[in-house]
Design a protein around this nucleic acid. Structure first.
Length: 109
DNA sequence: TCACTATATCAGC
DNA sequence: GCTGATATAGTGA
């Protein structure tokens, strides 16, 4: 049975965009924002923070502009972040010294 | 209206 | 490479 959470238009647009990021690729908060014509990357982070559709909406595929991990499950550090890193590793996306190992895995909308 | 926010960028060191 | 300041806009209370 599909949940139908009450979400805003903006959130729906963010989730739709993120759902397009293929396995093995990542995007950034800023790139998602730009794709939506929004100048606030923080607003994208807020929307993903409350993603009710995980893992159908793969918010773990959105990282920071400096190619560091960004956040996960409301956390910017700690256990949650290691889970995010493991999810990505499972898809072939690995990090080296806290940065995306292969920048060519950044997906362009 | 206010105070948050899983950001981005820049200046200064 | 780090820290702090600032721009920015979406959202719940």
């Amino acid at each position: 049975m599909g949940m139908t959470p009450r979400i805003t238009e903006f959130q729906a647009r963010v989730y739709r965009a993120v759902a397009r990021i293929p396995r093995g690729r990542v995007s950034t908060y800023g790139m998602v924002a730009a794709h939506l014509g929004c100048r606030s990357c923080r607003a994208v982070g807020q929307a993903l923070r409350r993603n009710p559709f995980a893992p159908r909406v793969p918010c773990h595929r959105v990282i920071a502009a400096d190619l560091s991990l960004g956040g996960f499950q409301g956390q910017r550090r700690g256990r949650a972040l290691r889970r995010k890193q493991r999810l990505l590793a499972r898809e072939g996306v690995t990090f080296k010294n806290g940065r995306l190992g292969n920048p060519r895995q950044v997906y362009r909308f």
